[in-house]
Simulated assay, not measured.
Amino acid sequence: MSREKLKSLKRIVIKIGTNSIMRPGQQVDFRKLDRIAFVCSSLQQEGYEVILVSSGAVGVGAAMLKVSDYPKEISEQQALASVGQGALMNLYSRFFRAYQQFVGQILITRDVVDFPSSKYNCQTAINTLLKKGIIPIINENDAISVDEMNHQTKFGDNDTLSAIVARLIEADLLVIMSDVDGLYDKNPKLHSDAELLDHISAITPEVLAMAGGSGSTFATGGMETKLRAAELILANQQAMIITSAADPTVLFDIVAGEKVGTLFSQV
Score class of each variant (00 low, 15 high):
Met1Ala: 08
Glu4Gly: 07
Leu6Met: 14
Lys7Pro: 11
Ser8Trp: 00
Lys10Tyr: 07
Lys15Trp: 09
Thr18Ser: 15
Asn19Val: 09
Arg23Gly: 00
Pro24Trp: 10
Gln26Val: 05
Gln27Val: 01
Arg31Ile: 13
Lys32Tyr: 03
Lys32His: 11
Asp34Met: 09
Asp34Cys: 10
Arg35Asp: 15
Arg35Ile: 12
Ala37Trp: 11
Ala37Gln: 05
Phe38Thr: 00
Cys40Glu: 11
Ser42Val: 00
Ser42Met: 07
Leu43Ile: 10
Glu46Asp: 14
Gly47Lys: 06
Tyr48Ser: 07
Val50His: 04
Val53Asn: 12
Met64Lys: 15
Leu65Ser: 12
Ser68Ala: 11
Glu76Ile: 08
Gln78Tyr: 01
Ala81His: 08
Ser82His: 03
Ser82Ala: 15
Val83Gln: 08
Gly84Met: 06
Gln85Arg: 05
Asn90Met: 06
Ser93Lys: 05
Ser93Tyr: 02
Phe96Ile: 02
Phe96Glu: 04
Arg97His: 13
Tyr99His: 14
Phe102Thr: 09
Gly104Lys: 12
Ile106Cys: 13
Arg110Tyr: 08
Asp114Arg: 08
Asp114Pro: 00
Phe115Gly: 00
Ser118Leu: 03
Lys119Pro: 00
Tyr120Thr: 06
Cys122Ser: 13
Cys122Pro: 05
Thr128Met: 08
Leu130Cys: 02
Ile134Arg: 11
Ile135Tyr: 01
Pro136Ile: 01
Ile138Val: 13
Asn139Arg: 11
Asn139Val: 12
Asn141Gly: 05
Asp142Thr: 06
Ser145Gln: 09
Asp147Glu: 14
Gln152Asp: 09
Phe155Met: 11
Phe155Glu: 10
Gly156Ala: 06
Thr160Phe: 07
Leu161Gly: 07
Ser162Glu: 12
Ser162Trp: 07
Arg167Cys: 10
Leu168Trp: 05
Glu170Val: 01
Leu173Phe: 10
Val175Arg: 06
Val175Lys: 03
Val175Asp: 02
Met177Leu: 15
Ser178Ile: 04
Ser178Gly: 04
Tyr184Ser: 06
Lys186Asn: 06
Lys186Cys: 08
His191Val: 01
Ser192Thr: 10
Ala194Pro: 00
Leu196Tyr: 02
Leu196Asn: 03
Asp198Thr: 12
Ile200Leu: 13
Ser201Gln: 11
Glu206Cys: 01
Val207Glu: 01
Val207Ser: 05
Met210Val: 03
Ser214Glu: 08
Ser214Tyr: 04
Gly215Tyr: 05
Thr217Val: 13
Gly221Trp: 05
Glu224His: 04
Thr225Trp: 06
Thr225Lys: 04
Leu227Lys: 03
Arg228Asn: 12
Ala230Gly: 10
Leu234His: 13
Ala235Leu: 09
Gln238Trp: 06
Gln238Met: 15
Ala239Thr: 13
Ile242His: 03
Ile242Tyr: 01
Ser244His: 10
Ser244Val: 02
Ser244Leu: 09
Thr249His: 10
Leu251Phe: 13
Val255Cys: 08
Val255Ile: 15
Val260Asn: 05
Phe264Ala: 07
